[in-house]
């Protein structure tokens, strides 16, 4: 994690919990961080074929633009190619509104916090 000028902290922290891949994002989600998200998630998703759920934790994301939303939608498509599920966690305010406008909250579930999630219980 690095502190960027202007006070923005941008990072993607990825870990695996059982068959779930969790990506925690911090900072602004735009073209640059969207590409970081893609890289971090896709590599692990491809490496571990048994993974069947992707959790995107947006609790610490305060800004998105259309390219950032495109990166989220791209991960949804990626997960769906293997019949997996995607869950979004902790989106608030403008970020949640953007996800609604982009139609992403119609495609996948949203949970308030990471603690509320059990991928096995969120089957569609």
């Amino acid at each position: 994690m690095s502190q960027k000028p202007g006070g923005e902290i941008m990072s993607v922290n990825v870990f695996i919990d059982g068959l779930t891949l969790v990506a925690q994002l911090t900072g602004d989600l735009d073209m640059v961080t969207g590409a970081e998200l893609k890289k971090a998630v896709d590599q692990r998703w491809d490496d571990f074929e048994k993974l069947d759920c992707l959790v995107l934790d947006l609790t610490n994301v305060s800004f998105t633009d259309s390219t950032g939303l495109g990166a989220i939608l791209g991960r949804y498509k990626k997960v769906k190619t293997r019949e997996g599920d995607m869950i979004i966690v902790g989106a608030k305010g403008g970020v949640k509104e953007d996800l609604e406008i982009a139609g992403i909250l119609k495609l996948c579930k949203h949970a308030e916090s990471l603690e509320d999630i059990n991928c096995d219980k969120h089957r569609f």
Partner: peptide, 11 residues
Amino acid sequence: PDENLGLGFSF
């Protein structure tokens, strides 16, 4: 269409 939502100008 693969990468973009087409929302830029709308936003």
